[in-house]
Write a protein that binds this DNA or RNA. Structure first.
Lengths: 172, 172
DNA sequence: CCCATGTCAGTATCACTGAAATAA
DNA sequence: CTTATTTCAGTGGTACTGACATGG
């Protein structure tokens, strides 16, 4: 969800964290919209393309390995893989050595889809990076990793109680 | 969807755009997970909190203005507002001067929820920013804005044909 | 029997399109 | 009548939890 607060003077008085959050949400929402747009134009979403890209780089990966790579719950991947398989972009085969595992490979169509560049998030990122000095790019990467890791560590810390359903007491 | 490719040597050979995308997806996924976690702990999601924050800053905004501020389709907001109203965190009232408009205000509970800092995305961002030099922060902001605007402009450019349904020809 | 791998069922949120209701 | 504002109905995607089937 991108944000542009009403008056710039109001925005200037915001805490810098909130101002930075505007940019973060704008980016997250931009990725989401780009994903939806890609689905209309190319037929695959952003996450789906990411899976294609990785399976293309590491053919024969298992579903579990892929889930670990993406830091996603295995059951999340099931749906993504099903949609890719339905489009005949990749195949799931039982590993002959360990028939529990699903071995993933791109089909011919999958490889062609993988080669597409126009209109992808990657293309937009490449264009943006080309227009910014390398130093800024590195700084940006560092900051983003900082934010991401803080989000993660918060998650770690709060594993303990975790009933299901909202904890109403948090908001009196 | 955060990404950590199997071997770092493989990752080093990737185009820089793809390497940067790993960071972007990791961030987007981090925001998503934080949102889910917040729902469990505090009872509201990231986007919901953003709405609370803005309505808190600009009480009496209409739904349409808020949608424009967030760059979101009005119908998207309807659902978010419904959930917030159901939790009695904000109120929708018909504007007496123009009864089509829905005027938004925080309830007492909404204001209390808005005041919460612990465990929010904003807190994680604040912590990350505190740990990075201002120059890096500014650089990061610039790069993110670049990427976001490229994603947007791509969207503009591709408005023309836009049949519905995937364009199958894109993948032979 | 126990553990690992993966899918399935169910749930929630966000975001869109397109149509409808209501009011200016 | 026309336009603006918002909601509603329907669809699709991601992501989770927890249960389950299957295989090592």
């Amino acid at each position: 969800m991108p944000v542009s607060l009403p008056s710039s003077s109001a925005s200037d008085r915001l805490p810098s964290a909130l101002r930075f959050m505007q940019v973060l949400w704008a980016l997250a929402h931009g990725l989401d919209r780009a994903s939806k747009r890609m689905r209309g134009e190319v037929g695959i979403t952003g996450p789906q393309r990411l899976v294609l890209r990785i399976v293309g780089l590491v053919p024969g990966t298992s579903a579990g390995e892929l889930a670990a790579t993406l830091h996603v719950h295995p059951s999340t991947l099931t749906g993504v893989l099903r949609r890719l398989e339905r489009q005949r972009l990749l195949t799931r085969l039982a590993d002959p050595l360990d028939r529990r595992r699903a071995v993933l490979r791109l089909t011919q169509r999958g490889r062609r889809a993988n080669a597409i560049q126009a209109g992808t998030v990657e293309a937009a990122v490449a264009a943006a990076l080309a227009a910014t000095p390398p130093r800024d790019r590195d700084a940006a990467r560092r900051v983003l990793e900082q934010v991401t890791s803080r989000l993660e560590s918060r998650h770690q810390r709060s594993v303990a109680p975790d009933r299901n359903g909202p904890v109403r007491s948090a908001i009196r």
